[in-house]
Design a protein around this nucleic acid. Structure first.
Lengths: 347, 347
DNA sequence: GGACGTGGGAGACAGATGAGCAACAAGACC
DNA sequence: GGTCTTGTTGCTCATCTGTCTCCCACGTCC
């Protein structure tokens, strides 16, 4: 129904000035000397006509699209991607940028990822955010380097690209620390079997914290299973039916904690009276809805998305040198979210 | 490190032909007469140089960006948005389009939504997908009409814009039907308190199915609470402690079903031996991870996203007239996902 | 005759598009 | 056999998309 879109020349015509002048006014060009009356006139007319610049033409001319590419794994299957996107989107919007999102399976080949980046490049995005669904080492498509880029929730195997990752160790320390502070001296860890940084770092932190507290970290019970509800269930059963079972359980993630809840229920152990549990991830759907609410460690997905976007834009605008930050990944803290699954051990 | 990006003229130069010829070859222009040798030459050179067209310039000239705008509510807080995005993204990619996603709070004002659409329009997206996080009636920003648009998971209060929505009634019928088929004759419904289509349609379907089966649908117990875990818990307690309690429970969504699980456990009722439960939504994290696995009705978010995208692109390419489809919303079915929470009632 | 105040013109960005121009061959005609 | 016509093949030129930006022009007033 609506007729053709109106361009800058329509505004110029209607305002009785040249296209140049309209451009000068609307972009507040510093050196342009134009009388206040003309400025008003142009602005008024532009408003009346509902003029909005054609960003394509603008971008073509200025070599700036105001678009950020975000390649994200598994948008739908984990809520984590959503939080990263949200953080990135809000940070981008705040600075006048928009996001172009490309979804990719976690299993995508390097070529396929390269094609994704290529698509972004052809659209001339000003920068690229490359996000993975969990903290790990990734091999990057070669063409990623051609525009400013930041890695979210992963580090490059080759290094030398700016990255933000969660403080796995700090988070694990907070979790185990909370158990110790509540008075527990027998604490177990239900770990994941995947060979990812989190698995090792959380385990190390677990043992260290115990040892530092004067307990025997190396002797503390650890059971590993796939990081799903049923894995948590199995591991918890093993750990809780062992001799001298722990009164506090640190779980690799909330899903495994959910399994631990069931194992505890089956064994007649009440949470938190008989058994205290801490999770990791802070998946709302689980942690807040379990009964009792699960105390857990939050992964800073939103924050990582926002941080990456902020710094990417800084780099694009020449306010930051990404090369400098690329030396070491930036580590964002994982705060403990306290709910109701920790209590003092029974005497 | 990488030097300037290479353009069509670089290819032309290297191949020893004009820019026009390169364009003709690479775009397979029908009427262009170019010798096979030249074609090969051009293609080879383009490949070697790693040439990719500048989509901005291309779009400026052709008035086609190959981009679809997707404004979605609450990307991060519900997994539903993720499924819609995934469906849309895969459908778009399959036809050579990319998505520009704008996230908006469910509470955003009409002006703010209009600004979102405006941003998309300035970027000259070829069409717009407008998605909500749950099935409801929405008031649309006025500027939405200026490009082909499709509504996902909602219908416009004013009508007359193409929309896809889930078959609430069919889903509810399947859920209740499953309970009846298992032999239950006393069935209750735990409903939501929000005034949304789903609330009413599922209730109607619930009563109808019972009545059609020769039971007294109007007398069947229904309890309403907020559609969260604790609401489900409260409602289930009420319904299960009433006189002559049901042996089968249909829950408004999986979260409420999760609450019902706890209520059942507290009352010493085993699922599915003593109580059968059906949910709605098929939220993986909950439904598949509850014990026993929750039989539930899946909302076709992926399918709606894909359907909307398909038809939007058809309209953009002139293969479909959206105005025709706008007469009635398209309804996509909600299949029952069978797990382990339904069994025959005890004798 | 500079300085100042106001504003406009002509590319350029990167590629798409259709008309049009050489070059050559085959056939027609004298 | 040579010239002209007509057709075909192969490719290029000019122009267009909407906006920005460098540089220049025109008056006026000291």
């Amino acid at each position: 129904m609506s007729n053709k879109t109106i361009g800058i020349k329509d505004v110029a015509l209607a305002a009785g000035v040249s296209v140049t002048t309209v451009s000068h006014v609307l972009n507040d060009v510093a050196y342009a000397r134009i009388s206040p009356e003309t400025r008003d006139k142009v602005r008024t007319v532009a408003e009346q006509l509902g003029y909005g610049p054609n960003r394509l033409a603008q971008a073509l001319r200025t070599q700036r699209t105001g678009m950020l590419g975000l390649v994200s794994e598994e948008i739908a299957t984990t809520p984590h991607a959503g939080r990263i996107i949200l953080g990135a989107d809000e940070a981008a919007k705040a600075r006048g940028y928009n996001l172009m999102i490309i979804n990719t399976p976690g299993s995508a080949s390097l070529e396929s990822r390269q094609a994704d980046v290529q698509a972004l490049l052809e659209r001339r995005v000003d920068g690229i955010l490359y996000a993975t669904m969990y903290h790990r080492n990734v091999e990057l498509p070669a063409n990623l380097g051609s525009v400013p880029s930041v890695l979210v929730d992963s580090v490059a195997t080759g290094g030398n690209i700016t990255a933000v990752i969660p403080d796995e160790e700090g988070g694990a320390r907070a979790a185990v620390g909370a158990l110790l502070e509540a008075g527990h001296t027998r604490v177990g860890f239900i770990n994941n079997t995947d060979d990812v940084p989190a698995t090792h770092q959380r385990l190390d932190a677990f043992r260290s914290v115990l040892t530092e507290a004067g307990l025997d970290g190396d002797a503390a019970p650890v059971e590993s299973e796939v990081s799903e509800v049923h894995g948590g269930y199995e591991a918890a059963r093993r750990i809780l039916t062992g001799k001298n079972p722990p009164t506090g359980l640190f779980c690799y993630n909330d899903r495994m904690a959910m399994g631990a809840y069931r194992a505890a229920a089956e064994l007649g152990l009440r949470i938190p009276e008989d058994l205290s549990v801490v999770g990791f991830d802070d998946q709302e759907l689980i942690a807040a809805n379990l009964y009792p609410g699960l105390t857990t460690v939050a992964l800073p997905h939103y924050e990582m998305g926002a941080w990456a976007t902020e710094h990417l834009i800084d780099a694009i605008e020449g306010k930051t040198d990404l090369a400098l930050m690329a030396l070491h990944p930036t580590i964002l803290s994982c705060p403990l979210v306290i709910r109701d699954s920790i209590a003092a051990p029974r005497q």
